[in-house]
Amino acid sequence: MAKEGLDAILAASAYGQHIQVLFMDEGVFQLLRHQSPKSLSLKSPSNLIETLPIYGITDLYVCEDSLTKRAINEELIMPGTQCLSKEDIKHLIATQDAILNF
């Protein structure tokens, strides 16, 4: 549901909400740079994610554990995303008014 999740993020920003985005589990693959989806006639989610700051969405987080489990080095993912530990994620979730997961 990568595309649907990003669409919801953009809609939420149009709705004037303060949005924080956490990528975790398989979702971290969306942050990989240098993807070549064109050969499959698809669009790269990371291209869309890179445009999020233009829409005022700058709080992008990624689960450190999810990266480690998939052997994804931080250098392979988009710059501007902040790595969070399990404890950090607990705090992030606890401080939200509403949570949508995709």
Binding site: D7, A8, A11, Y15, D97, A98, L100
Partner: peptide
Amino acid sequence: SGLGQLLESAVSAERIVTFGP
């Protein structure tokens, strides 16, 4: 209708419960 309805629910309901994918 559009995604705005999902977001309005998320903001106005006390809980939003997601099923799936």
